[in-house]
Design a protein around this nucleic acid. Structure first.
Length: 152
DNA sequence: GCCAACGTTGGC
DNA sequence: GCCAACGTTGGC
């Protein structure tokens, strides 16, 4: 059992959108970074805990709790010429990009970046590091417990 | 819209 | 394999 923080742009898929999906399950499409892909492919397992993070928006921060709902499988958007996630170099025989399904469990109050920074226990979180751009990052059990406690 | 940080690309 | 140029991310 591991824990993760996953960024989503709420204009694209917000925690409300995910909760409104059938069973609260959404495919985490659009990851186009090898490190993030490898986390999904090599380390994520069904039932892993997920902090649902809203990025590139007015109020960036943790907005909900979710869980990993599948192992990795090919991201269909890479094959769709009409998608902004289309990758002409990827083939169905050898797909370059994968995704996992994520099940939204509940919406929380927003835990903002400044609030996260104010917690000494969270000081080492990857999301808080300068220049961090990775859309999927591991969260330690201690960080997870701290955040869950704060959001209760 | 700015801009720092970082990943990717491609010429050599 | 180096590295400059370029594109993207994402908070502010």
């Amino acid at each position: 059992m591991q824990y993760w923080l996953m960024k989503s742009e709420p204009d694209e898929v917000s925690i409300d959108d995910a909760l409104a999906a059938p069973g609260g399950v959404v495919p985490w499409f659009g990851v186009r970074n090898y490190q993030a892909r490898n986390f999904m492919r090599d380390a994520m397992r069904e039932g892993d805990g997920v902090l649902f993070y809203h990025s590139s928006c007015a109020e960036p921060g943790i907005a909900g709790i979710a869980e990993v709902a599948s192992t990795a499988y090919p991201d269909e958007t890479q094959f769709d010429p009409g998608s902004k996630y289309h990758d002409p170099k990827s083939t169905r025989e050898n797909p370059r990009w994968l995704l996992v399904d994520v099940r939204a469990l509940r919406k929380t109050r927003l835990m903002s970046l400044p609030e996260m920074r104010a917690h000494p226990e969270l000081a080492d979180m990857q999301i808080l590091r300068r220049g961090n751009r990775l859309s999927i990052t591991p969260v330690t059990p201690a960080e997870w417990r701290c955040i869950i406690r704060e959001l209760e």
